[in-house]
Design a protein around this nucleic acid. Structure first.
Lengths: 176, 176
DNA sequence: TTCCAAAATGAGTCTCCACTCATTATTCTC
DNA sequence: GAGAATAATGAGTGGAGACTCATTTTGGAA
């Protein structure tokens, strides 16, 4: 790949992550191009469709999440991850949009699958440690993760509301 | 108002409720007109903007919800209402969209306020009956209501997932 | 029945956005 | 440095959807 092409590809990815992270997946490609200091044609040369562009940055964001989940563990790992995701969501609208669609929108079902697996690992560990009720299964944990994260993003919850809402969810997950 | 105008206004409202309920607020005005058997200009004569149309049907749907909340009570009223809303959400995408925006999208903040009040009443009753922990406050209940309802709609949860997810939330609300 | 104000019609405008492509510019190879 | 290949440019296309308005139709008062 030519040097300028390589440079621009990176600029576009950086700009796209910024823009989609701020505005959500609805942001226009034009805005990404402007932010990258590049003509719109250049964006489409590197990423033939908007979905491809979204997919590229999603892959990165998801990988980060999966790694974060993988590094946690023990009785509190699941709770920590949940809290982290909710807090980040307020400035990472894109991830949420992706998770909601199950990855089909940008054809990343396998990446979403990996995240589900990672969360499943955290759940098992927490249940083994006795911090999460054995009656709880992965689907509802993912459902809550996505719902609450989306709620936090869309509703613009402040730190206190986030904490209070998570407190209820966590109390529901713990054995009683 | 002339007889045909009155007839058409009703047709439009019925069609709009159907269309927005199925497809969500993103549905086109054109589709509403088609479903109502009316030209698009007629829709705009009755409701100058799409927001006005949305607002009109939202008002009806919200009123239904508020009434449903008002008819419930006792220790389980809040749980019942929560369950009802989540179940209905799967075919009432619109309400969810409205609730998320706090009513600002269609300028119905007072209606949303009334719903919040009604839920507040249910919460107080439940806490008085000892079925909800006294540490729980209205904001996080509304936050959970909106999040889980949205999740159910957007994620297309089946009855079982809905039940399992609500079980976790309810366990979190009950005293422990 | 007549007549006109109210209402309905739907092709047309406007705006936004994803995506294209002929032209111009930049890199790289020899 | 010349030439070819690769990339960048940005005006242009097409489609979707909200909204308009000149024209036609309809309801109902006199």
């Amino acid at each position: 790949m030519r040097a300028d092409a390589q440079r621009n590809r990176i600029r576009i990815l950086v700009a796209a992550e910024e823009v989609f992270t701020e505005t959500g997946p609805g942001a226009s490609t034009e805005e990404v191009a402007r932010r990258a200091g590049v003509a719109i044609g250049t964006v489409f040369r590197h990423f033939p469709t908007k979905g491809d562009l979204l997919g590229a940055i999603m892959k990165r964001l998801l990988a980060e999440l999966i790694e974060s989940a993988g590094q946690r563990g023990g009785g509190e790992g699941l709770f920590e991850f949940f809290t982290e995701l909710t807090a980040q969501a307020s400035y990472k609208r894109t991830v949420v949009g992706l998770l909601e669609s199950g990855g089909t929108a940008v054809r990343l079902p396998e990446a979403v699958g990996h995240l589900t697996e990672a969360v499943g690992g955290l759940l098992s560990e927490a249940q083994a440690a006795g911090t999460v009720s054995p009656g709880v299964a992965l689907p509802e944990v993912m459902a809550l993760l996505v719902s609450v994260t989306h709620g936090a993003v869309h509703g613009g919850w402040d730190a206190e509301l986030r904490e209070r809402t998570l407190a209820v969810v966590f109390a529901g997950l713990r054995p009683h």
